[in-house]
Amino acid sequence: MAVAATPIRVLIGKVGLDGHDRGVKLIARALRDAGTEVIYTGLHQTPEQVVNTAIQEDVDAIGLSILSGAHNTLFRRVLELLKEQGGEDIVLFGGGIIPDDDLAALKAAGVRALFGPGAPMNEIVDFVKGLRS
């Protein structure tokens, strides 16, 4: 049985006014099946809630699903709060409908990876598992 001695801990959730949670639930479940401890926060989180939760849960990474179009504001705010609270070592990644023009800017701002529509599940799982190697 390939059970890691120290599982990776990841916060998975949705921020803002966005109720489309089918995709994020699939990802939470896939990460669970890959041996990750997934802290699932559910819908309608504020960036403040996300960062407080990430710090209390001492996660290795935060994965946010944003399908509302507010990605530029929300990802940047999470990065800002992580910095304020001394959590810069927590990796931020995400997914959603994000135009190409915004992708590069968000990555430059510090979002480690962004997965768009059609991203294969194993790509996301491999990214998370790769955080420890």
Binding site: M1, A2, V3, A4, P7, A28, R29, L31, R32, D33, A34, G35, T36, E37, V38, I39, Y40, G42
Partner: peptide, 8 residues
């Protein structure tokens, strides 16, 4: 089986 968990 995998050691993973969904903490909800």
């Amino acid at each position: 089986v995998t050691g993973g968990a969904l903490l909800g």
